[in-house]
Design a protein around this nucleic acid. Structure first.
Length: 889
RNA sequence: GCAAGAAUAGCUCAGUUGGUAGAGCAUCUCGUUUACACCGAGGCGGUCGGGGGUUCAAGUCCCUCUUCUUGUACCA
């Protein structure tokens, strides 16, 4: 055992322990184990993504749960993996292809492009995994999965085919969310509504039968007016009812369109007349359906105008076209005014551009097992923490829309549908396709390509990434693993993907495994910056966790983050909190270094005989810590876990206990020293085990260095010892010692205070005289001297203090601080008066409360008793203080 | 609009059946005594967002208002 350096350097230590754990297969989950199973599947991060602070929070919690479960003797599976992240990854690679090769994916062709994506994946796919390892994550890496690996892809196809055969998947022409940048359809969940400052254009359409007479219309999208096929008014709108059935003139391309009546139109909004563009607005589309209106699409997929009849606008970008169309209206004298108007616009989650409502042929899924999934959450078979997310979940479940699962991308699971070549055109243009079309023999749906493949053409689209993710809890496991570890125990994820992922996994779980996929869902907080903003790359406010680990260590980062990880709300990220984690690691390290300086070899605690109050006290607090941790873990209160660990070690162990025992080491009494070392070893070895889930590396390091864990053994694989250390001692005796220790500590605090008031904080020459309250005080004087930093402490029941001797009433009795030549009578009088005033106030307050009959009658007996005890103490103190004050004249 | 959450010390946050408001950081004063200055001792700092109510007693329960966050709906 080598002497430890003065400050803890986590970097090398952490790396070394991770390697040791891996080499010894500590993370391996044995599906044949007879132990109780515990399992978590990781929310798979984007395969080419990099770690951000949200991942750190999320995965630290999972690691803490997994490590704690191992310590409780469970067989633990933490199953890791990554997600192919269709749009995000494809977009990245397209950009790279454009930059590096000056070409596009279409020029390269599907096969060549996919080669580029795979090599990008191979190049960057390991980054986030290595970052998780750096963090200390105890995943079973032998079971690492990827949503596009072979077995997983088979599952995805199988599920598609199965749901198709069930009639739950169909193809149809629908109004979908179209991303003009990624050139693909999106699900409703991938559209983010953003409030915007828009312009509301007021324009006028001339009545065909009455030239010079106009109908006023308001719109935010003049660039789509070429697609107008009608103007709608509310049938109850008295202003316009008479116009229904008349025709107005669309300005360009010029056309006569009818005025129709529809309830959807809001009389209050704008002019009360709504232009109907069924191709470019969801509501207009529905109105169009009701009135059997023609659909005129005036946009290209990329958001540019498709309207050769109006050359001024044709091929313009939609936003340029908006301005241009307004100008054209103005030139024609048809623009009345433009108002500022706040509305919200749907943005593509990935590409961050406004989505375009667009009619297009897509594959849709009717969700399976919705009833079972709803019941599972409502009945509590699946627990949500915080519970309020149940409501959010239910709001969504109650308003389910069919899921648009096809994407016009190449990177992903290609839809396993083939069209007979000679009919491919008809089939692709067909209004709808579903299981009934299989019978005609013109489409083929299967996990394997059709045998006469040359006669078939495969659907080009791929599936939404989430269509693979929703199978994650079971598609990642083989049968033996499932038998042991499914359903999984805990799922830890962010509430932002409750619809994307959590809710859908529950439905898939019921559909394919006939049961819930997980028992508890823990939703983490969202980490925000100090101004309360979401962390984002574009804002540049997202700290790099790797930098933080370089600076504070993985353990420090974990501990610091967990200290502020609440169960409910968002957390504001503050680097100072992380540095507290580093400081704590250093404190721990130095406390262990202090132990090491007093000899090698673990000293066993063989007996509780002859232990001092502060020994018993710290052991009692250790036992209490264990109980507190159980409670905090049971309720997933990680900030409580952290707070208990912090408080016990820093305040109770270091600030109080370690200071108190320094006298044992100075005294020269070897037996006393050995007893103290035994207590230290008991506390440290257990404490390091308790702390391990939060700070896995340093706890292994120190346990090994101090010999608490043998060569080839690990804290992480050691079952936690739950038996109380003080089991052999009666509760009454324990509390007697604890009270004595508490009295000593509080007296130390009082006397330090007294010293400070006389500017003697630094002086160690001060002597004290005590009028003790009990016999046991005598044995505590040496400890007190050490704690206070004083020269001596005498007991003298009959002590008569010289006039003006500073004194304090403490838990061990009246204590005097004789100061030769330093006595200032007036100062001491003033100090005592102040103290008396304070105590008198307390006596009055407690007296008043106890004088209140209703309080005594209604409050719980223990509350009343506590108040009585307090009053007694204050009164006692007051009379002592008054006595001392009287002695000064 | 609807729903959920939040508002406590200068900052970040605790405060679990109502019973004398807490921690860390920051700041100030002292201090390198055999672990640790990534430290120790001590101090300063709060009418718990405003207003009402219930109660002997409210940070905690109820009502209401204000501000913020997050969903969600509508948005021509």
């Amino acid at each position: 055992m080598s002497e430890l350096p003065k400050a803890y350097k986590p970097q090398a230590v952490e790396k070394q322990w991770y390697e040791k754990w891996t080499a010894n297969k500590c993370f391996h989950a044995d599906e044949n184990s007879s132990k109780e199973g515990y399992s978590i599947v990781i929310p798979p991060p984007n395969v080419t993504g990099i770690l951000h602070i949200g991942h750190v929070l999320n995965n630290s919690i999972q690691d803490i749960l997994a490590r704690r479960a191992r310590q409780q003797g469970k067989e633990v599976l933490w199953l890791p993996g990554t997600d192919h992240a269709g749009i995000a990854t494809q977009t990245k690679v397209e950009k790279k292809v454009r930059e590096d090769e000056g070409t596009t994916r279409h020029e390269l062709g599907r096969e060549e492009f996919l080669k580029r994506v795979w090599s990008w994946k191979d190049e960057h796919g390991g980054i986030i995994i290595n970052q998780l390892k750096r963090l200390g994550c105890s995943c079973d890496w032998d079971r690492e999965r990827f949503t596009m690996d072979e077995g997983y892809s088979e599952w995805v196809s199988k599920v598609f085919v199965d749901l198709f055969n069930d009639g739950l998947i169909y193809r149809g022409k629908r109004m979908v969310n179209w991303c003009p940048k990624s050139l693909t359809a999106l699900s409703d969940e991938e559209v983010i509504a953003k409030p915007q400052q828009s312009k509301l254009f007021f324009m006028k359409y001339e009545f065909v039968d009455a030239p010079g007479e106009y109908l006023e219309i308001s719109t935010t999208r003049p660039e789509t007016l070429m697609g107008d096929i009608a103007v709608a008014v509310n049938p109850d709108d008295e202003r316009f009812a008479k116009h229904v059935g008349r025709k107005v003139r669309r300005p360009f391309p010029e056309a006569e369109i009818p005025v129709i009546a529809d309830d959807h139109v809001d009389i209050e909004f704008g002019t009360g007349a709504l232009k109907i563009t069924p191709a470019h607005d969801k509501a207009d589309f529905e109105i169009g359906q009701r009135h059997d209106l023609e659909i005129i699409d005036v946009l290209h997929p990329d958001g540019t105008i498709n309207c050769p009849e109006v050359p001024e606008l044709d091929k313009l970008d939609r936003f340029q076209a908006r301005r241009k169309a307004a100008e054209m209206l103005e030139e024609k004298g048809l623009l009345i005014k433009v108002e500022q108007h706040e509305n919200s616009v749907g943005y593509s989650e990935r590409a961050d551009v406004p989505v375009e409502p667009r009619i297009s042929m897509q594959w849709f899924l009717k969700y399976p097992c919705t009833d079972e999934a709803t019941d599972a959450v409502l009945s509590g078979d699946i627990t949500y923490r915080p519970e309020r997310w149940v409501k959010t979940h239910m709001n969504w479940m109650g308003n389910l829309q069919d899921w648009c699962i096809s994407r016009q991308l190449w990177w992903g699971h290609q839809i396993p549908v083939w069209y007979r070549k000679e009919k491919v055109f008809d089939l692709k243009e067909a209004e709808s396709l579903d299981v009934t079309d299989l019978k005609a023999g013109d489409i083929y749906v299967g996990t394997e390509p059709p045998e006469d493949g040359d006669n078939w053409e495969r659907d080009e689209d791929v599936m939404d990434t989430w269509f693979s993710s929703w199978l994650w809890p079971f598609a990642t496991m083989d049968d033996a693993t499932k038998a042991k570890f499914y359903p999984t125990t805990d799922l830890v994820t962010g509430p932002d993907i409750i619809f994307f992922w959590v809710a859908r996994m529950i439905m898939a779980g019921f559909k394919y495994e006939n049961q819930i996929p997980f028992k508890n869902v823990f939703f983490t907080s969202i980490v925000r910056d100090s101004k309360g903003r979401k962390m984002s790359k574009s804002l540049g406010n997202s700290p790099d966790p790797i930098d933080l680990m370089d600076k504070f260590g993985a353990d420090g980062l974990r501990f610091g983050l967990m200290r502020i990880a609440p169960t409910g709300t968002d957390i504001r990220y503050d680097e100072d909190t992380i540095s507290e984690g580093r400081n704590f690691a250093n404190k721990l390290y130095n406390a262990c270094r202090f132990r090491q300086m007093h000899g090698t070899g673990v000293v066993a605690l063989e007996s509780l005989e002859k232990l001092d109050p502060h020994h018993i006290d710290i052991l009692a607090k250790l036992d209490q810590l264990s109980l507190n941790l159980d409670k905090a873990y049971d309720s997933y209160r990680f900030n409580d876990v952290t707070a208990h660990l912090y408080e016990f070690f820093w305040t109770e162990y270091c600030d109080k206990f370690l200071e108190a025992i320094k006298f044992d080491f100075k005294s020269g009494d070897d037996a006393a020293k050995q007893r103290t070392l035994a207590v230290i070893d008991t506390v440290l070895s257990r404490y390091l085990t308790h702390l391990h889930p939060l700070m896995p590396h340093i706890t292994e390091e120190l346990s090994a260095k101090l010999g608490y864990v043998g060569e080839g053994e690990f804290v992480m694989t050691t079952e936690i010892n739950q038996a109380p250390v003080l089991a052999a001692m009666s509760a009454a005796e324990v509390s007697k010692f604890s009270e004595q220790a508490t009295a000593v500590y509080s007296t130390a605090s009082n006397l330090r205070n007294l010293k400070a008031e006389y500017h003697l904080a630094a002086s160690k020459d001060v002597r004290f005289v005590v009028k003790p309250v009990a016999d046991w005080v005598a044995a505590q004087c040496d400890t007190l001297i050490t704690l206070i930093g004083a020269k001596g402490m005498e007991l003298d029941t009959c002590y008569e203090a010289p006039q003006g001797t500073p004194a304090a009433v403490t838990a061990i009795g009246e204590v005097y601080m004789p100061l030769d030549g330093l006595v200032d009578l007036d100062a001491e009088k003033a100090r005592l008066d102040k103290e008396i005033q304070k105590v008198a106030q307390e006596v009055e307050r407690a007296g008043k409360k106890l004088g209140n009959e209703k309080f005594v009658a209604n409050a719980k007996p223990e509350v009343v008793q506590k108040e009585k005890d307090r009053l007694g103490e204050w009164e006692n103190k007051l009379s002592q203080l008054e006595e001392m004050r009287a002695a000064l004249g």
